[in-house]
C-alpha cells in the first residue's frame, strides 16, 4: 500500500485529525487543572500549620496530606491512576464523559509534579526576599503572591515546559479507557490497513512536531521574561 492508499482511502486520515483534537483537549485542560491544583498543593506542602505544636511539634497535617498525595501520585503509574479514575472513582457515573474523566485523571496526576516544581522554585528563592517583604509589613500571603511566586513562575518555566510535554506524551494511554486520541487513531489505521510503519511514524512525527513547537514557544517566552539574571 502506498501512503495515499493508507491515509486517504476511506478518509482514514480523519482518525488522526480527530485524535489530535482529543489529545490536545485532554492535554490543555489537564495542564490547567495541574497548574491550579499543583499550586494549591505546593502551598499546602509549605504550610506550617501545626495544631498540636506544644506537644507534637512536627505534626503538620496540611503539609503531611500534600506530601502523601504527591508521593502516591508520583510513585504509581499514570495508567493505573487513569484506570482507577475511570473504573473506580467514576465507575458509578457512566454518564460522565470520558473526556472529563481523562482530563481529571491527568490533571490530578500532573498536579503532583507541578507541586514539586513549584516547591523547588520556592526553595530556590533567597530567604531575604520573604524577609524584606515581611519587614515592609506585607502579610505572608501578600509576600507569596506579590514577591515569591512571580519569581518562582519565571524560574520554573523550563521545568513546567517539560511537564507539559510529558503530559502530552502520556495522554497517549487514554486508549485504555476507549478514547480515540491521536495514538488510538494511528492504531485504527494500522488495523484497517495491516501496515504498521506508516501510521506509527506518522503519529510519532505529529507528537514530535507538537512538543517541539511548544518547547520552542516557551523558550521564547522564557527569554523575554529573563530580567533577573
Amino acid at each position: 500500500m502506498n501512503l495515499q492508499q493508507i491515509f486517504l482511502e476511506g478518509n482514514r486520515i480523519q482518525f488522526l485529525w480527530y485524535g489530535l483534537e482529543i489529545t490536545l483537549l485532554i492535554t490543555i485542560f489537564a495542564t490547567l487543572i495541574g497548574l491550579v491544583a499543583g499550586l494549591i498543593l505546593a502551598l499546602m506542602r509549605q504550610s506550617a500549620f501545626a495544631p498540636f505544636a506544644k506537644v507534637w511539634k512536627n505534626f503538620r497535617p496540611i503539609s503531611l496530606l500534600a506530601r502523601i498525595y504527591i508521593t502516591v501520585i508520583r510513585g504509581t503509574p499514570a495508567l493505573v491512576q487513569l484506570l482507577i479514575f475511570y473504573y473506580v472513582i467514576f465507575g458509578s457515573a457512566p454518564e460522565m464523559s470520558k473526556l472529563w474523566v481523562a482530563v481529571l485523571a491527568f490533571g490530578f496526576n500532573s498536579a503532583a509534579y507541578v507541586a514539586e516544581i513549584i516547591r523547588g522554585g520556592i526553595e530556590s528563592i533567597d530567604k531575604g526576599q520573604m524577609e524584606a517583604a515581611r519587614s515592609l509589613g506585607l502579610s505572608y500571603w501578600q509576600a507569596m503572591r506579590l514577591v515569591i511566586l512571580p519569581q518562582v513562575m519565571r524560574r520554573s518555566l523550563p521545568a513546567m515546559t517539560n511537564e507539559f510535554v510529558t503530559l502530552l506524551k502520556d495522554s497517549s494511554i487514554v486508549g485504555w479507557i476507549g478514547m480515540n486520541d491521536l495514538m488510538r487513531g494511528a492504531d485504527n489505521i494500522r488495523f484497517q490497513t495491516g501496515t504498521a510503519f506508516e501510521s506509527l511514524f506518522a503519529v510519532a512525527l505529529i507528537y514530535l512536531v507538537l512538543t517541539s513547537l511548544f518547547s520552542w514557544g516557551m523558550g521564547k517566552l522564557e527569554r523575554s521574561l529573563d530580567v533577573d539574571n
Binding site: S135, L136, L138, Q142, L146
Partner: peptide, 30 residues
C-alpha cells in the same frame, strides 16, 4: 513592621520589579 524600616546587607530588592515598583509595592499593598 510597616513602621519599622529595615535595610539588609544583601539589599534584598525584588528582582522582578522595577526600581519604582520596588518602592511602590508596600505603599499600595500595606
Amino acid at each position: 513592621r510597616s513602621e519599622i524600616g529595615m535595610v539588609f546587607q544583601q539589599f534584598n530588592l525584588f528582582p522582578h520589579l522595577t526600581v519604582l515598583e520596588n518602592v511602590v509595592l508596600a505603599l499600595r499593598k500595606v
